[in-house]
């Protein structure tokens, strides 16, 4: 569980973030949530699917990285193997929160239990710290370039989530989703059946009246829809990774 606290210059002068440890957050996740804006990056390396949250039944847009709940084939020795790391992982260990449930404004929080977070009371022994350690605040209390960049990613994520909700509600309203059913045989002849995943219904999309297509285009969603469709073949890349793992 994340241990989130609001970031404050006075308290977190000595807080360090280790960028090399951020990837670790993707370990054990076979579905990594995405926002529409990053689909063009992800779709060239992983299948993009829709799945339902187990607690709420609500749809999530995600990159498929494994064939069982705990499997992430993109992770080797704690490092992400792809060219592009989804924003949901990139943003670690920072989160957006609210000071009180009713507050209008957002505050930036940090997960103190993240493996990428290091709380160093003394910075005297600096030579013992990992070379890539980043601080959030300069000695004069101003924000470092690293922290400003981290906040930018959070803002991007927050905006992207609205765009994602719009995409999901359109996909459902236009009945553009269909369940995926995939039986896969790996190199060692073991088999798996992928259940609970959904993708774009290509026929339904092709039959969509023009006015709906225009609306999707104007909302900037059409590209995302085609990126999801185009990503389907990446399942072979994922199977190849699994076969390689089985062969090792």
């Amino acid at each position: 569980m994340a241990n989130l606290v609001a970031v404050q210059p006075a308290l977190h002068q000595h807080l360090l973030v280790l960028p090399s440890q951020i990837d670790v957050h993707a370990t054990g996740q076979n579905l990594i949530p995405l926002i529409p804006g990053e689909l063009s990056h992800v779709a060239t390396q992983l299948p993009v699917v829709l799945a339902k949250n187990g607690q709420t039944g609500q749809f999530v847009l995600a990159a498929l990285t494994g064939f069982t709940a705990q499997e992430n084939l993109m992770m080797v020795d704690g490092q992400w193997q792809g060219i592009y790391l989804p924003l949901q992982i990139q943003r670690q260990p920072f989160f957006v929160g609210k000071a009180t449930p009713d507050a209008a404004d957002y505050v930036v929080c940090i997960d103190l239990d993240s493996p990428a977070t290091l709380f160093s009371a003394e910075r005297s022994g600096a030579q013992q710290l990992p070379a890539d350690a980043e601080t959030l605040f300069n000695t004069d209390g101003s924000e470092t370039a690293y922290y400003r960049e981290a906040k930018l990613k959070l803002a991007q994520l927050l905006q992207g989530e609205q765009q994602r909700e719009l995409l999901l509600s359109e996909l459902l309203a236009l009945r553009l989703l269909q369940p995926m059913s995939l039986d896969i045989t790996f190199a060692d002849q073991s088999t798996t059946r992928l259940n609970g995943l959904y993708t774009i219904d290509e026929q339904q999309l092709a039959a969509l009246p023009a006015e709906h297509l225009v609306r999707l285009h104007q909302q900037g969603l059409l590209g995302a829809i085609y990126a999801i469709l185009g990503s389907a073949a990446q399942i072979y890349g994922l199977i190849a990774r699994k076969n390689k793992q089985l062969g090792d």
Partner: peptide, 11 residues
């Protein structure tokens, strides 16, 4: 309770 809060999806 979950239906009241989240509802079912149509697929």
């Amino acid at each position: 309770e979950k239906i009241r809060q989240y509802g079912f999806q149509n697929i």
